[in-house]
C-alpha cells in the first residue's frame, strides 16, 4: 500500500545526523509514493471510465458532427444536442426496458435473500453432518453456467408457459444468484463468533429467536454485499434474456438496447451511447455507496475476513 505514515523511529540509530538523513529519505519516499499513487489512480480512472466519457460525448452530438471522420472525435465540432437522448424515450421502449430490469432485479434480490440467508445459516451454523458437503455442492452449482443450461431451461420456460414474459427471468435468475449468495453468506456467517447466539439462547431465546435478533443484524454487511452483487449479476445477464424473450415490451435493458436500437445495419449510435450512460451511472453510483459502507465496516472491524 502506498499510504504514507510519519517517519518511523529507529531506536538502533541514535545519532542526530543519521536520524536527519533517514528522515529525509523517508520524506522523499513518502512524496514519491504519493505522486505515483495519484498518477496510477488517474490513469486507472481514465482507462476504466474512458469509454463512458466517449459515450457521453457521442450521445450528445449531431449526426453532421459525428459522421465525419475528419472531425476531432473528442470535441464538439457543432453544437451539442439532446435530441438523440430524447429519441430513446419518445421513439423506443427504453423506459420499459429500464423498468423491467429494475423490477426483475429487485424481485430476484428479494428471492435470493429469502432463500439464501436461511440456507447459509443452516449450513454454517446448525452443525448437521451434511453441512460441509452441502456447502461444497452449492458452490459447484454456481459453476454450472447459463451458457450450459440455457437450452434446457428454454424448454422448461416453454413448459411453464412463461416464454416471452419478463416473469420467466424472475423464475430463472435466482439460479445464478442463490448459489453464489449462499456461498458468500456462509463466509460472512463463519466470521461471526458462535458465542453470540449461544449467549442469546442462554438468555432464553429459542434458536430461531436468537438468529433473528442477534445474527441477522450482524449479518447486515454481508446481506448488503449480496444485494449489490445479485443485482449487478441480474442486470448484466444476457443469454437467458436473449433466449427466453422476444416481444419488445417484455425485454430488459441488456437485450432490449442492443436488439432494438440496432435495426439491421442501422445503428442509432448516439441513442445507444445515451442508453449505456443512463443505465451505467445510476448502478455504479448505488454500488459505490454500498462499497464505501462495506469498506468502512471492514476497517472498523465489524466484519473480519
Amino acid at each position: 500500500m502506498a499510504a504514507p505514515t510519519a517517519t518511523a523511529p529507529r531506536s538502533d540509530v541514535p545519532t542526530a545526523a543519521e536520524t536527519a538523513r533517514l528522515r529525509r529519505r523517508y520524506a522523499r519516499r513518502d512524496i514519491m509514493s504519493r505522486v505515483s499513487l495519484y498518477v496510477v489512480a488517474i490513469l486507472a480512472a481514465l482507462v476504466c471510465a474512458g469509454p463512458f466519457v466517449w459515450s457521453t460525448l457521442t450521445a450528445t452530438k449531431l449526426n453532421a458532427d459525428l459522421y465525419n471522420p475528419q472531425h476531432n472525435p473528442f470535441l464538439y465540432n457543432k453544437p451539442p444536442t439532446a435530441d438523440h437522448v430524447m429519441f430513446l424515450f419518445t421513439d423506443t421502449a427504453f423506459a420499459t426496458f429500464a423498468w423491467n430490469t429494475l423490477w426483475v432485479g429487485l424481485l430476484v434480490v428479494l428471492i435470493t435473500l429469502v432463500l439464501g440467508v436461511p440456507a447459509a445459516y443452516s449450513i454454517a451454523r446448525l452443525n448437521r453432518p451434511w453441512s460441509t458437503p452441502m456447502g461444497i455442492a452449492i458452490f459447484f452449482v454456481y459453476l454450472v453456467p447459463p451458457s450450459l443450461l440455457f437450452l434446457s431451461l428454454s424448454r422448461v420456460v416453454v413448459s411453464t408457459g412463461l416464454q416471452d414474459s419478463t416473469w420467466s427471468l424472475v423464475l430463472i435468475y435466482p439460479t445464478i444468484t442463490v448459489p453464489v449468495s449462499t456461498w458468500l453468506l456462509i463466509g460472512f456467517l463463519k466470521a461471526l463468533p458462535r458465542d453470540i447466539e449461544e449467549q442469546a439462547m442462554v438468555d432464553g431465546y429459542s434458536r430461531l429467536g436468537a438468529m433473528l435478533r442477534t445474527i441477522l443484524p450482524l449479518l447486515f454487511p454481508g446481506m448488503v454485499a449480496v444485494v449489490v452483487f445479485a443485482f449487478t449479476l441480474t442486470a448484466s445477464e444476457f443469454i437467458y434474456a436473449l433466449t427466453f424473450i422476444s416481444p419488445t415490451e417484455e425485454k430488459v435493458v441488456s437485450t432490449g438496447v442492443p436488439t432494438e436500437l440496432i435495426r439491421g445495419d442501422v445503428f442509432f449510435w448516439q441513442s445507444l451511447q445515451a442508453a449505456n450512460i443512463l443505465i451505467a451511472v445510476p448502478i455504479a453510483f448505488v454500488f459505490n455507496l454500498f462499497l464505501a459502507r462495506f469498506i468502512s465496516g471492514f476497517t472498523m472491524g465489524a466484519v473480519k475476513g
Binding site: 486507472a44 476504466c48 469509454p51 463512458f52 445507444l272 451511447q273 449505456n276 448502478i283 455504479a284 464505501a292
Partner: peptide, 28 residues
C-alpha cells in the same frame, strides 16, 4: 484501499466497467 483526495470519484469511475450490464458496455 488507498486514502487520497477524490478517492470517491476514482472509485466510482473505476467500478463502472463491472457494474454496467455487459451487453451495453460491449455496444460502447
Amino acid at each position: 484501499v488507498a486514502d487520497f483526495k477524490g478517492k470517491w470519484l476514482v472509485r466510482f469511475l473505476v467500478l463502472l466497467p463491472w457494474t454496467t450490464p455487459v451487453a451495453l458496455s460491449s455496444v460502447t
